[in-house]
């Protein structure tokens, strides 16, 4: 029976205090409820004498509890209205947040860094070389003699008959082996150029070349390295398949196929329903190449591999056309 009175007071207080907008509102409410003179709680306490004697101690305790509850409500309301006075008001918080003016890294850079990072974690050093090369480093020392049809595999931009835009980052292999002895463990990312411009080719694109030379290096190491690398790059376990092929500077040579990272090998448009993606070339360093740089092929063996950064970027980000990569449309760049 008394409980109803308590609940009624509590509810009325809650309503009034919630709508109090100023400090004086709150103080007015405070006076009316907990005031020493004629406050509502004061009146409640005065009704103690109407309560049955055995219930009086409990009733008194309940009034005191309610009092401290209301005082707490008053304190909170006071803090609220005082803060509101100090803070700015009237903001439409649904307005868009103001984003800092940040730029975007080119997708080629993002992918190149990812590739570099994986190989660096495997102990590789990043190496670079000139983009304008001589025929010796781009071709001859890579076992691609002048007047040999293997020169035709790559259509070349020439500056003079002996100076050209490198068609591959493989000359960095030669320059590295010229400069130091095994063990060698490098990757060489960079721009390469082919005299080729159609729907699926750009006259300039980015490649990464890898080279490992040491005692006892085998083709199984090549397969292991590429399997680990591609699994890390695509964040899933991929299988690498070697398909015998021909490159002048490796023997045996192989095309590297990768279980399709789009469909997982079940077949899709990207892998032309084969379940495999042709992703790069590789092989064991040809003894003739070692001959050009003075490394004894009986003492050392090595492997080399190459892959296109453009192709990886297109696969990773679902870019449908190579031309987007070098068009530098800001609507494209801002997606990365």
């Amino acid at each position: 029976m008394h409980q109803e009175r308590f609940d009624d007071i509590r509810a009325r207080f809650a309503e009034e205090i919630a709508s109090a907008a100023s400090e004086s509102d709150v103080l007015d409410i405070k006076g009316r409820y907990t005031g020493k003179k004629r406050g509502i709680l004061q009146e409640l306490m005065a009704s103690l004498k109407e309560v049955a004697p055995e219930e009086r101690p409990a009733f008194g305790q309940a009034v005191n509890a309610l009092k401290s509850e209301l005082e707490q409500g008053v304190d909170e309301a006071l803090a609220r209205v005082r803060d509101a006075k100090r803070a700015p008001a009237g903001l439409d918080v649904t307005l868009p947040g103001l984003r800092p003016d940040l730029g975007h890294l080119h997708p080629i850079t993002r992918v190149r860094r990812e590739i570099e990072q994986i190989f660096i974690s495997m102990g590789y050093a990043v190496a670079t070389g000139p983009e304008v090369e001589d025929a010796y480093h781009n071709f001859e020392a890579l076992n691609t003699p002048a007047d040999h049809p293997s020169r035709d595999i790559q259509d070349t931009f020439y500056i003079t008959p002996d100076v050209l835009l490198r068609t591959q980052t493989s000359p960095v292999q030669i320059r590295t082996m010229e400069a130091r002895r095994p063990p060698i463990k490098i990757i060489a990312p960079g721009r390469v150029f082919r005299r080729d411009d159609d729907v699926s080719h750009s006259p300039m694109f980015f490649q990464v070349e890898g080279l490992v030379v040491d005692r006892g290096i085998t083709m199984a190491h090549l397969k292991g390295t590429l399997t680990h690398f591609y699994s890390a790059l695509f964040h899933r376990d991929v299988e690498v398949r070697f398909r015998p092929s021909f490159f002048p500077f490796t023997e045996p040579s192989a095309e590297t196929d990768l279980t399709c990272v789009i469909c997982g090998g079940s077949g899709c448009a990207v892998c032309k329903r084969t379940g495999w993606l042709e992703i790069g070339g590789c092989g064991m360093v040809d003894p003739a190449v070692f001959g050009f740089v003075g490394i004894d092929p009986e003492e050392y063996t090595g492997f080399a591999f190459g892959l296109g950064i453009d192709r990886i970027a297109m696969l990773k980000y679902g870019i449908d056309h190579i031309r987007h990569l070098y068009d530098n449309d800001v609507r494209f760049l801002e997606q990365f």
């Binding site: 495997m122 490992v212 040491d214 006892g216 290096i217 083709m219 199984a220 190491h221 397969k223 292991g224 390295t225 590429l226 399997t227 680990h228 690498v240 398949r241 070697f242 398909r243 015998p244 192989a254």
Partner: peptide, 9 residues
């Protein structure tokens, strides 16, 4: 080359 193992140097 199907029988080639994948191992690291």
């Amino acid at each position: 080359l199907e029988g080639l193992r994948a191992e690291l140097p």
